[in-house]
Design a protein around this nucleic acid. Sequence first.
RNA 1: GCCCCUUUAGCUCAUUAGGUAGAGCAACUGAUUUGUAAUCAGUAGGUGGCCUGUUCGAAUCGGGCAAGGGGCACCA
Length: 638
Amino acid sequence: MPIVQLPDGKKISYSKTVTGYDIAKDISISLAKKALAIQVNDEYKDLSVEISKDSKVKIITLDDDYALELLRHDSAHVMAMAVQQLYPGTQVTIGPVIENGFYYDFAREEPFTDEDLSKIEKKMMEIIDQDPQTRREVWERKKAIDHFKSIGESYKAELIDAIPGNEEISIYFHGDWHDLCRGPHLPSIGRIGKAFKLMKVAGAYWRGDSNNVMLQRIYGTCWKSKKDLDLYLHNLEEAEKRDHRKLGKTMDLFHFQEESPGAVFWHQKGWTLFQTLVDFMRKKQLEAGYMEVNTPEIIDRGLWEKSGHWEKFQEYMYTTVTPDERTFAIKPMNCPGHCQVYNQGLKSYKDLPLKLSEFGKVHRYEPSGALHGLMRVRSFTQDDAHIFCTEEQITEESVKVTKLILDIYKSFGFENVSLKYADRPEKRVGDDAVWDQAEKALLEAIKASNVDYTLNKGEGAFYGPKIEFVLRDAIGRDWQCGTLQVDLNLPGRLGSTYIDKEGKKKTPVMLHRALFGSLERFTGILIEHYAGKLPFWLSPVQVAILPINEEHHEYAKEMLNQLEKNSIRPIIDLRNEKINYKIREHSLAKVPVLMICGSKEVQDKTITLRRLGKEDQQTAKFSEILSSLSQESQAPKF
RNA sequence: GCCCCUUUAGCUCAUUAGGUAGAGCAACUGAUUUGUAAUCAGUAGGUGGCCUGUUCGAAUCGGGCAAGGGGCACCA
């Protein structure tokens, strides 16, 4: 005698077990037609689920957000159906819903080609037209394993074996095709609609483990309507346009070449941008009490053995053997070097906290497949610092670091920042009491920052807990940049000490901290965030002076000179081209300010100014414009 | 590192049964002296990523290597 309660509070009582479909029908015929699934006490179920107990229910239709998950999940199944019909002998493994779509991993000897994708898509359309009904069955575990083994689906059998004993094994049938699946699913396949597209084939390890065999993964996207699909595809194209690798080329910022994979050749314009960033951060750090130092790139392996890098990090280190047969490593991190600077001279508790910063270029032999433009390189500059302090100072210093990082992010328009906090792992060094203190300190810093955070339990470094700073860019992508790590290990290993109030030698705690992590990567993020249209203060070329014809060249040169004297970065275009042509070209080059001068301007000592992306013009005295641009050229303050 | 794909002029891309390559833009030369997103004409430009094999003949087919791309794994 179940009584079901609808979202509006209305109750319907039944004299016997009912299905979701029955309920939908009792509410209205039109709802029954639209119904895709049912939510029973916060759990999503098939529409065919039998309800025997009192429950709160909600009929899921295309209007619910959850519908998209159903559509995508069913799309994955249909894709697997299509693949197995077209390519017999292919094994199915897992096929989950992901952001914007779905994928399915297949085991098949032959690789899938792009032509295969269109064939599969076509077959999917056919299946959707046939609209097979969905049916759920619960099987006994052994029967399920034996069955999948008998039809050659060993991966599925392995998956069933891994399902916890208290869970039931549900098998979904779509027509005569079936798959192990938790569900729920649409009542019939035709409900998917046709707003989907197969995107790409990729390799993926079975169970995400690189020791396992590699499967073939097909990615697809699926939406509620053709319109949504088109919008998604359009957004992808737009995102491609702001790809920093593409913009780096067209804006003449940097290049890569095969003789030095993963290392940047910075061109004048890109390097100007890079240096502008460094200048900005240098100033902010000096204001925050950091002392900038510089340490060697190449250091004897003995020091890396002491620091533990030789043991833990060797596979990422470049090494070199000199003619006198000494082995050196090119630094992958700055910390050991900073400890050496700290170790010079006796330190007192009065010297703490001691903050050493460095724009240190580090080299790491990253796996070739990881390289990606500026975002992942083998040679990069860290905006690195190490804070030597007492255990009692961890909290205060952590709060300061967090504030500094968040303030700097804001200067670049990154308001949407989140934190990831990782606490003690199983394998670690240091006393639990010190860990307690370090973790408490980081949590307090997080609390003080008033920013959302997620906990990565047990994911801390072996030497201490850490916070990672994640920023979201203009098109909603997250980038992990800054980091703050408490280190209870390295100062001890490298013999760093200070004299405390009682005159006893003690080992300081070290905080590792980076604002953006890699400046190369941050430059890439900035380019994409701004789609190349950098704010005036960061723009490598800030002003293009465009005279109308030869008569105005002299005046134009005069202004060039004035701008340069005022530390603005101008260029001048004296080519014998029409003004339209010059405007177009420098606009495409994303120069933020165009200065046009013709006879009128020469006569009145004015300039006509046009800003990137805007069509309106502004004519004013050159002197006035000069002072306002000088103002605008300053780095943000906070 | 692993799977798949790609690599042709400075850039973006063509050449769909193997017969030594073509366009647009850029560059250069000349004409044009121009007022807010492409003035016209001409010239030059390529041992087709590198090595190797098959063939009378390879950008095109096979093998190897490298770099780049999409993913996976790793990660700033």
